[in-house]
């Protein structure tokens, strides 16, 4: 539960904080929704879950993107996610994206030309750009929610 005091009434932490700054929260939700519109949902969901693991955001690990599951993401793959570098469950395309996403979270200055080139090879220039933008959105969003102590966020 969020540690912010004197919030308006609401069913969830998100609702209560959103009531405080409705326009800002609506715009923030819009950016997160847009991230899913411009990117492959399975790739982005895998990246989102790795971001949650790296940031220690356990509540985010418990939920799933419906878009990703509808697009074929399985729980078996999610269960194997920590072993993505070596697990045969993951394709080269997914490995390239997860490698870039992890480095982005740990230290963006450490992202190499080779990592970007590999993602570009699989997704194309436009796809790589959109993937990096989407990862940036979800990482920022998770950090903001963690900072504010928000556990339940809109799906």
């Amino acid at each position: 539960m969020t540690w912010l005091p004197h919030l308006p009434e609401g069913d969830t932490d998100w609702d209560r904080l959103a009531a405080l700054c409705p326009e800002a929260f609506s715009a923030l939700s819009g950016v997160v929704a847009a991230a899913w519109d411009d990117t492959d949902p399975v790739l982005l969901e895998l990246a989102r879950l790795r971001i949650a693991t790296l940031l220690g955001y356990t509540a985010e690990l418990a939920r799933r993107s419906e878009r990703a599951t509808d697009a074929g993401l399985t729980e078996a793959k999610v269960a194997d996610l920590a072993a993505w570098p070596t697990s045969p469950t993951f394709t080269e395309r997914e490995r390239a994206c997860l490698s870039l996403a992890e480095q982005f979270v740990v230290d963006p200055n450490g992202v190499t030309d080779a990592q970007v080139a590999e993602v570009t090879e699989h997704l194309g220039a436009r796809g790589c750009y959109a993937f990096v933008e989407a990862v940036s959105v979800l990482e920022t969003f998770q950090r903001a929610c963690l900072t504010l102590g928000i556990k339940e966020v809109p799906v």
């Binding site: 700054c21 715009a27 923030l28 819009g30 847009a34 411009d38 750009y129 959109a130 933008e133």
Partner: peptide
Amino acid sequence: DTAGMAPTIAGARQQLRRVAFRMRT
């Protein structure tokens, strides 16, 4: 000028920036 490479995100980010700049708190 990469806005056209991820147009939905670019548009949403622009809207968030507008809202953020208007916040006076």
